[in-house]
Write a protein that binds this DNA or RNA. Structure first.
Length: 768
DNA sequence: GAGCACTGC
């Protein structure tokens, strides 16, 4: 294993491009690092090469950093030349400028600047339609003048698409080419250059950068957008920024959020000042049911049909919890509406499902216009969208006038006692309910029908959905925090500290994986594992795989395990799909089967027409391509860290055995043993009764299995399983399989027998 | 014999 690590001190502020690790073209995270000024505290020097080719000073060069006014900015924006690069401004620019100046935030530009200049940290609240995501970063650029000190302004988004589309929009607004002064950076794609001074990025991406540059020295200002969503990355970044702010008094921070919870952000950031800007939405009238509903799906269908029968023109958005529920509801609504059209002359209706696993072209259908009246002069048609929470944040659909909100969604919950994450249908929060209602008022006044009582809304719904950090296994998070240089986790100031038991579980898991030593310090392996965008068990499995002569195969497998399911099984063709899957089946388990799929996908049979090949074999092209992408990224990280890429000869009898052993190196904590003669298994140490998921290719003769995930539904299932041997467990993970730590029982007895067997075998060898 | 809300590196 490689033990040469890049010197972090050096990495944070290199002066010149160098070969190897520091070559910015080789490492997308370091794209801007080669043109840093020497000292961020005093650095007002112009960036080398920035103004090359244009001898004329831009209008911004007369600006004094943190002393500008809205009027100055206004004048500069009026042209005639681009204040960023002195190029003549286009007609399109002036057209957009007009609409920009109509946005609510523009009225408060001076107010924003006053606060921004006065304080280090500012909380900014802007409701939907205020223009905060596009305008505030521009306000900042014009006052912070990052190019004068060779730095950047970053604006983080929770989602990739948002980072991309907002960057494109702002590049248009500033009349520059995307990737020049304005760019974006997301996983697999860095559209920035040495010219870039405003960078939109995913919050996860900034977190990655922070691991190599703890003080975020490349940035003069960091804007955290959509902070109210409280993603894991946002929460960690906030904790980190709170500490960085002390070490770097020159760093400006803006926390942007929707109205709710603004005071909580203020309090957390040492009573930072708050600026609130109203949004631009239409009023939405709220209706509650007088009595609680017993069956929310039935009530939802009734409400949708009622709206269609009695309410004026306008599209309907219904929130349900999952794929099956949604498809079922779509069928029923279509059926009932057809009857209404025949019997009551109702207008035509078109129903669209909407959920994350739907292929993109199907998702796009929701933007088709409502159907026209069935005949001239007939009643107008209506579009009904039945969707998951994806319609609450990720996708906005204009033209929705009616929202039906049953008050439930599937949410991730984590149970640290049995160490299982699962999805549970749970009541939504007040904030969620408000967000859902708001979807009815984007284009004109709307109505929201809540299928619960007003009393229930007031008394039973919690204010905010619990932040993700309280609902997740934190093994990965703890590893990230350690890599960020945070040694004392208990005193790390998170906005909502997780339960001590959850933290303990994470530390314990990382200790067993040898990523943390007994004092909780990052080990060499832990440092290496944190380089990979993977969960710790997967990372450790991959890093260990050269020892098992199968790192090429484990690269593929790791990638496959970190993308959505590759097997497709449509309800209409279950049998065919199963037959196709059987073509790839390996008797020793699902991991090996997936690997067979990948090899076939990369082989000659699929090369000509992968799309067709996938379709014929009931495989998801999207998932396989995505695995390919991930594999490339992981491979680069392996090479960078000098981890060998090895394969056992395919004809060697140990080809698959080596892979199965390598699986154990990461997943030795996810082993189950057959319990008696039936179909049930027991997980090792936790002693949970589980069944093999019916999708497995493995038959129930396997005594010991390694599993990839624990699925908690009506029954306990382990999914993606491969058979292993108990001697491997003792051999590969001796610490975890220290028998004295096991409770008395079948598993301990079986392991003890294995120990005895191994000892006998060794004694015989020794005796000879 | 079949439960993949949604993100992200």
């Amino acid at each position: 294993m490689a033990d040469r690590r890049p010197d972090e001190q050096e990495m944070s502020r290199p002066k010149k491009p160098r070969t190897g690790d520091l070559d910015p073209t080789a490492n997308p995270y370091l794209a801007h690092m080669y043109e840093e000024s020497d000292d961020y505290n005093t650095g007002y020097k112009s960036r080398n090469g920035y103004s090359n080719g244009s001898s004329t000073a831009t209008s911004l060069s007369k600006f004094k950093r943190h002393q500008t006014t809205a009027l100055q900015a206004h004048t500069a924006e009026d042209g005639p030349n681009n204040p960023l690069n002195n190029a003549p401004l286009s007609q399109q620019y002036f057209n957009i400028l007009k609409t920009r100046r109509d946005l609510p935030v523009h009225k408060q530009r001076q107010e924003f600047l006053d606060l921004f200049q006065k304080t280090q940290i500012l909380v900014f609240v802007g409701e939907t339609g205020s223009g905060k995501t596009t305008q505030i970063p521009q306000f900042v650029v014009f006052d912070d003048l990052p190019h004068m000190s060779g730095k950047l302004v970053a604006c983080t988004q929770p989602r990739r698409v948002a980072a991309m589309s907002v960057a494109q929009r702002v590049a248009n607004e500033m009349d520059v080419k995307l990737g020049d002064e304005v760019g974006y950076s997301i996983r697999f794609e860095d559209v920035t250059s040495s010219k870039t001074i405003l960078k939109y990025m995913t919050d996860g991406m900034l977190l990655r950068e922070a691991m190599h540059d703890h003080d975020l020295t490349r940035y003069s200002c960091i804007i955290l957008d959509e902070a109210h969503e409280r993603t894991l990355s946002t929460d960690i970044l906030m904790g980190l920024l709170k500490e960085v702010a002390v070490r770097r008094p020159d760093l400006k921070i803006v926390i942007m959020s929707a109205t709710l919870d603004a005071q909580k952000f203020q309090r957390y950031f040492m009573d930072a000042p708050l600026l609130a800007v109203p949004g631009r939405t239409h009023p939405v009238e709220i209706f509650y049911t007088p009595e609680p509903e017993r069956d929310y799906v039935e009530a939802a269908l009734r409400t949708v049909l009622q709206i269609h029968a009695t309410e004026p023109e306008g599209d309907i958005l219904l929130f349900l919890t999952g794929e099956e529920e949604i498809e079922d509801a779509c069928r029923k609504i279509t059926l009932e509406a057809d009857e209404m059209i025949r019997e009551a002359d109702a207008g035509p209706i078109k129903v669209y499902p909407l959920y994350g696993t739907l292929p993109p072209h199907q998702q796009q259908k929701i933007f088709e216009p409502a159907p026209p009246p069935a005949r001239a002069g007939g009643r107008p048609g209506r579009k009904v969208i039945v969707g998951t929470n994806i319609a609450e944040t990720s996708l906005t659909i204009d033209g929705i006038v009616y929202v039906v909100d049953p008050g439930f969604s599937k949410q991730k919950v984590y149970n640290p006692r049995i160490r299982v994450e699962s999805l549970l249908v749970s009541p939504i929060s007040k904030a969620s309910a408000q967000q859902r209602a708001g979807r009815a008022g984007r284009t004109r006044p709307g109505k929201c029908f809540r299928l619960y009582t007003e009393a229930a809304f007031k008394k039973e719904l919690i204010e905010q959905t619990y932040p993700e950090i309280l609902r997740s296994n934190l093994a990965n998070t703890v590893l990230e925090l350690k890599k960020l240089g945070i040694d004392d986790l208990v005193h790390f100031d998170l906005m909502d500290p997780p339960a001590p038991e959850t933290l303990m579980r994470a530390l314990e898991e990382l200790n067993y994986l040898a990523c943390l030593d007994d004092d909780g310090n990052l080990t060499q392996l832990g440092k290496l594992a944190s380089e990979f965008p993977l969960d710790p068990a997967l990372a450790v499995m991959l890093i260990s795989s050269p020892e098992f002569y199968c790192s090429n195969e484990m690269l593929s497998l790791t990638a496959l395990l970190s993308v959505p399911q590759v097997f497709v099984r449509p309800a209409s063709a279950k049998k065919r799909a199963d037959e196709m899957k059987a073509l790839f089946a390996h008797p020793d388990g699902d991991h090996l089967t997936m690997l067979n799929v990948y090899h076939a996908f990369k082989g000659p049979a699929a090369a000509n027409d992968p799309k067709r090949w996938c379709h014929e074999h009931f495989l998801s092209l999207r998932a396989l391509q995505s695995a390919d992408n991930v594999r490339q990224q992981l491979k680069r990280i392996m090479e960078k860290n000098e981890l060998e890429l090895l394969s056992t000869d395919f004809n060697d009898k140990n080809y698959y055995t080596n892979i199965r052993r390598a699986l154990v190196a990461g997943f030795f904590m996810q082993i189950a043993k057959k319990d008696g003669t039936g179909k049930t298994y027991k997980t090792v140490k936790d002693d949970q009764s589980v069944l093999l998921h019916p999708s497995t290719v493995l038959n129930v003769d396997s005594e010991w299995v390694v599993y990839n995930e624990f699925v908690l539904t009506t029954k306990n299932y382990v999914r993606t399983v491969t058979s292993v041997k108990p001697e491997w467990l003792l051999d590969i993970a001796p610490n975890y399989y220290d028998l004295s730590t096991f409770a008395k029982g079948d598993i301990r007895t079986a392991l003890q027998k294995t120990v005895d067997k191994v000892n006998r075998r060794q004694a015989m060898k020794g005796g000879r």
